[in-house]
Computed example of a mutant assay.
Amino acid sequence: MTRPVVVLVGPPGAGKSTVGQVLAERLSVALHDVDVAIEAAQGRTVSDIFVEDGEPAFRALERAEVLRALTEHEGVLALGGGAVMQPDVATALQEGGHAVVFLDVTIADASSRVGFDASRPLLLVNPRAAWTRLMNARRETYETVSGTRVDTAGRTPEQVADEVTAWLGR
């Protein structure tokens, strides 16, 4: 059965894309970033999809891409921050026997990494409060679908990748 080596979940700014790239290089596999794949397929940014088509349209694209990648991608899979909030995705992660890592981060580290700019459509109005609301709503789901939690605060992507590879037994 084809499946990712590891699936990375967590909030915006946790380092899923950056750590995912380090892990992919270390494990000699490809990185599949769901948001990047959606942007490539749609020919526009996630932010533009949100603005032009609305969040439900984006979530439908995201759900389809995640469910496809969970059965077809053999490398590192980085999910968008809200993907796990979709019941089909959460169920697939939990029941599929996937190696899922919750990359956790504080708001201070997240804000310094992403800058809470226009490319983060759910964080446009009062970004710090919006991020905190998202994190409060999502934390339990991140923890439920994951086999381990790795704190990324104050750590380099390489240090985070060290912990993930140790957890994977590699």
Rank of each mutant, 00 (worst) to 15 (best):
P121S: 04
T45W: 09
T156D: 06
T18H: 13
A78L: 08
S28N: 14
V9N: 00
G54P: 02
A57S: 11
T141I: 08
T2M: 11
G54L: 10
M135Q: 11
Q86T: 15
A137H: 10
R133E: 15
A83V: 03
V9W: 03
Y142L: 04
P127C: 01
V76Y: 07
A99I: 12
P11K: 07
V22A: 01
I38A: 01
S28G: 13
E25S: 14
G43Y: 10
M1E: 13
A108R: 15
L23Y: 06
G75S: 03
V66T: 01
V100A: 01
V100E: 01
E163G: 05
R26M: 06
A69D: 08
V101F: 06
T106G: 12
A40H: 14
A108M: 09
G169S: 08
P12F: 15
V5C: 11
K16M: 09
S47Y: 12
K16Y: 13
V105F: 14
R138P: 02
E163W: 04
G147D: 00
L67P: 01
T148Y: 00
L8V: 06
V5Q: 13
V150I: 15
V46F: 10
A153D: 12
A37Q: 10
A64H: 08
V101E: 01
A166K: 09
L134R: 03
R3G: 08
T132N: 11
G115S: 06
R3N: 09
L61T: 02
D88R: 07
G169I: 05
V101N: 01
G10W: 09
Q21S: 13
R138K: 07
A41H: 08
G13I: 05
V34Y: 04
T18R: 15
T132M: 12
Q21V: 12
R155Q: 14
N136W: 12
T165Y: 02
P121M: 03
E72Q: 00
E74C: 04
A99K: 13
P127I: 02
E52S: 15
G20K: 07
M135L: 11
A161Q: 04
L103R: 05
V5T: 14
D53N: 12
T71Y: 10
V145A: 02
A30Y: 00
P121V: 02
L124E: 01
R68T: 13
A14M: 15
S119N: 10
F116S: 02
A14D: 08
R138V: 00
